[in-house]
C-alpha cells in the first residue's frame, strides 16, 4: 500500500469517525432501552434537544456571559477560554436535556401505559419543534461559532469518541456480566415473570429510558460541539439510522460499533469517491445519496432472513404492553 493510499484511508477514517460517533452513542443508549423491552422511536427528537442544550451551554461559557435578567448590570465581557471543565458541563447539559425528554416518554409509556410507537413518534416531533423554537435565538446576530474553540482532545480525537468506544465493552459487560444487566435482560425477555420475581418492571424500564435519552443527548452534543454548529434539524435523520443500527447489530454492542463505522465510511465516501466516475451524469450523484438507506434496508433484509438471528437476540417483550396482574 503506497503512503498516499494510506494517507487517504486515514483521512477517510477521520471523516468516518465524525459521522459514526453520534450514531454509535445514540444506538448504544437505545440498545439498553430495547434490551429492557421498550422501543423508543424518539431518538431523533432527543438528539436534537441534546444538541441544542449542549450548544447553548458551550456558547454561554465560551463567549460573553450575560446574566442581565438575573443580576442587573452583570455582564462578563471578555471571552473566556473554553476549558475541559466547561466542555464537561456542556456535555452534561446535553445528556440532561436528552434524559428530560426521555422522562416524558417514560412517564407516558411506563406510568400511563400509552402506546410506545405513538409516543415515540410524538417525541421525535416534539424534539424537533421544541429545538426549533428554542434554538432560533442561537442562530443570530450574536452568533459566534463554538466550533472554532479548541476542544479537549485525547490522542487527536475528541473525548466523546473515546467515550463511545469505551461504552461498547462497558455496556456489554454490564448487560452480560452484572446483576443489573441480568435484571434489565429479564425485564426485556419476559416482563411477567420478572414481575412475578418481584422486580418493579416500569421503574427499571424508566431508568433504562433515561439512560437512552442521556446517550442520545450526548450524540446530539457531539454533532454540534465537534462537527458543525447548531442549526434547525441538525441531526438530519441520524436518530432513525441509529434505530436501524440496532437491528443491524442484533442487539450486540460490538456489532453496533461495526455497523456505525460502516455507515460512517459509507457517508464519508459519498463526497470523496465522486471523482472516480467523471463520466457520471450529475443527476446520478443525487441517487448516490440514497446509498446509506438502501444499504440499511439490504442489511435489515439479510439479518432478518438468517433464521433465528433476530428471534434469538431480540428481547422477547420488546414493544409489548406490560400489564401487571392485579
Amino acid at each position: 500500500m503506497s503512503p498516499d493510499t494510506l494517507a487517504f484511508l486515514l483521512k477517510l477514517l477521520t471523516a468516518a469517525v465524525l459521522l459514526a460517533t453520534p450514531l454509535l452513542l445514540a444506538a448504544l443508549g437505545e440498545l439498553v432501552v430495547e434490551k429492557s423491552g421498550v422501543l423508543n422511536l424518539g431518538v431523533e427528537g432527543m438528539m436534537l434537544i441534546g444538541a441544542l442544550f449542549g450548544y447553548i451551554a458551550a456558547y454561554n461559557m465560551q463567549s460573553i456571559t450575560c446574566l442581565e435578567e438575573l443580576i442587573p448590570g452583570f455582564c462578563q465581557k471578555e471571552e473566556r477560554i473554553f476549558t475541559f471543565a466547561d466542555y464537561l458541563v456542556a456535555l452534561l447539559a446535553a445528556a440532561a436535556a436528552g434524559a428530560m425528554l426521555a422522562a416524558v416518554f417514560g412517564f407516558l409509556t411506563q406510568g400511563l401505559r400509552a402506546n410506545h410507537v405513538a409516543v415515540g413518534l410524538g417525541l421525535s416531533i416534539l424534539g424537533a419543534g421544541l429545538s426549533n423554537s428554542l434554538g432560533s435565538n442561537f442562530l443570530g446576530v450574536n452568533y459566534t461559532s463554538v466550533q472554532v474553540a479548541d476542544h479537549p482532545q485525547i490522542l487527536g480525537q475528541d473525548l466523546l469518541v473515546w467515550l463511545s468506544l469505551i461504552a461498547v465493552p462497558a455496556i456489554w459487560y454490564v448487560l452480560q456480566r452484572t446483576r443489573t444487566g441480568l435484571v434489565i435482560r429479564a425485564v426485556g425477555e419476559n416482563h411477567d415473570s420478572a414481575y412475578a420475581l418481584g422486580y418493579n418492571v416500569p421503574k427499571i424500564r424508566f431508568y433504562c429510558i433515561l439512560f437512552g435519552g442521556a446517550m442520545a443527548g450526548l450524540a446530539g452534543a457531539f454533532i454540534v460541539l465537534v462537527h458543525v454548529d447548531w442549526k434547525e434539524g441538525v441531526t438530519v435523520g441520524k436518530g432513525w439510522l441509529a434505530l436501524a443500527l440496532i437491528l443491524f447489530g442484533t442487539w450486540k454492542p460490538l456489532r453496533v460499533l461495526c455497523g456505525a463505522y460502516i455507515f460512517g465510511l459509507l457517508w464519508a465516501s459519498e463526497l470523496r469517491f465522486d471523482n472516480l466516475f467523471p463520466d457520471w451524469q450529475l443527476e446520478w450523484k443525487t441517487l448516490l445519496t440514497t446509498a446509506p438507506y438502501v444499504f440499511t434496508i439490504l442489511v435489515l433484509v439479510i439479518i432478518s432472513r438468517s433464521p433465528g438471528t433476530i428471534r434469538q437476540s431480540a428481547p422477547a417483550s420488546l414493544g409489548k404492553l406490560f400489564n401487571p396482574p392485579s
Binding site: 487517504f8 483521512k11 471523516a15 465524525l18 454533532i223 462537527h227 458543525v228 454548529d229 442549526k231 441538525v234 438530519v236 457517508w267 464519508a268 463526497l271 470523496r272 471523482n275
Partner: peptide, 15 residues
C-alpha cells in the same frame, strides 16, 4: 446543511 457542507469542504482539503 452544515454537516454536508463541512464534509464537502473537508473532502476538498483532504484532496
Amino acid at each position: 446543511d452544515p454537516a454536508k457542507e463541512a464534509e464537502a469542504a473537508q473532502a476538498f482539503i483532504d484532496a
